[in-house]
């Protein structure tokens, strides 16, 4: 299924419009007034539905099967992308795509999690859940970017780091921990964008940036609503409550000061207009890059460290 339950009424209207258009061509009959009316209705409906999405609906949107993935953003935002492979220890870590590309006059190291569109690719990419190899490849390439003084762009979209026997044997925790430490001290600009699902430590392992951005319908959380419902409610059906309680939407996180900017998506979500979304995001990234490229490496690192240092609410 390529659409979500709450998208259904809109999709039905759109199919009806398409049908009428085809009929007006084949029958020579004029359905234009009716089409116009239906279009207005569809727009109204879209505004209504998407104007008041619940956190759980937004989570579904963030995981939408048609949502643009890292590869789509690389294709639509950058040129001359050259993929670089391997962690030089064990494997390639194909849930993460990485390499140099041009973005509006900057050479950037792009590193992002890729979920996979069709069944075959989903399996190849392990549904975007990285093994340690992926994080170690990312680390190698981030250090390389630092060596050649190139900024880093990371795109976060993962259900989480892979929970498996091999991943544990090869040090999933160590791989994530090392990335957090090294990213906090890299001497080149880092921009991190949550484009879909920011799944806990698996996302954070690429997410220690000078700027942390989120697409409007992306989510970022310490645990999935499913996991949270199972543990804290002891009832897997409480996902809606868990999604609300976790405050995982872009606007919620922005209001808590954990995210620097929320990037607007087209009405109906990024998957409705992937190219428009990509060009909006490109412009936002360029603006931040232009700012960050002017800052000295020392200031960059100390500002980034301060930013991370100040995250948290507590009494004293």
């Amino acid at each position: 299924m390529d659409y979500l339950d709450f998208e259904e009424p809109i999709i039905k209207l759109e199919n009806r419009i398409e049908e009428l258009r085809e009929r007006s061509q084949s029958d020579g009959k004029d359905f234009l007034p009716e089409i116009r009316k239906l279009r207005q209705k569809a727009n109204r409906l879209r505004r209504d539905i998407f104007g008041k999405l619940s956190p759980w609906q937004r989570t579904k949107l963030a995981r939408h099967p048609m949502r643009p993935y890292t590869k789509d953003y690389i294709d639509n935002m950058t040129s001359g992308f050259m993929e670089l492979h391997g962690d030089r220890f064990y494997g390639d870590g194909v849930s993460i795509i990485s390499g140099f590309a041009n973005l509006d006059g900057h050479v950037v190291m792009v590193i992002g999690q890729q979920k996979g569109r069709d069944t075959k690719e989903k399996i190849k990419r392990n549904f975007g859940m990285s093994h340690p190899e992926g994080y170690r490849k990312a680390l190698r390439l981030m250090k390389m970017a630092e060596k050649f003084n190139r900024p880093i762009l990371t795109l976060l979209d993962t259900p989480g780091a892979y929970p498996g026997v091999g991943a544990e044997e090869r040090g999933q925790s160590e791989a994530i921990a090392k990335n957090l430490l090294v990213m906090s001290s890299l001497r080149v600009p880092i921009i991190s964008v949550v484009i879909g699902e920011g799944g806990s430590g698996g996302a954070l392992a690429l997410g220690v940036g000078d700027r942390i951005l989120m697409l409007e319908n992306s989510v970022y959380s310490v645990i999935s609503p499913e996991g949270c419902a199972a543990i804290l409610w002891n009832n897997p059906e409480k996902v809606e409550e868990a999604a609300s309680a976790l405050r995982l939407t872009a606007m919620d996180l922005f209001s808590h000061g954990l995210v620097d900017e929320v990037v607007k998506e087209p009405s109906g979500g990024a998957h409705r207009k992937p190219i428009t979304t990509a060009s909006t995001l490109r412009r936002v990234i360029r603006r931040h890059l232009n700012e960050l490229m002017k800052i000295s490496s020392d200031d960059l690192v100390s500002t980034r460290r301060n930013k991370i240092r100040n995250m948290g609410y507590f009494y004293e």
Partner: peptide
């Protein structure tokens, strides 16, 4: 692990503590 009841704020403590260790190592 992380304390779920503080949402993403607890996840960020992972970055905060690790970043501090980066300074200690330096």
């Amino acid at each position: 692990g992380a304390r779920m009841q503080e949402g993403l704020l607890s996840l960020m403590q992972m970055a905060k503590t690790s970043a501090a260790l980066g300074v200690l190592a330096e």
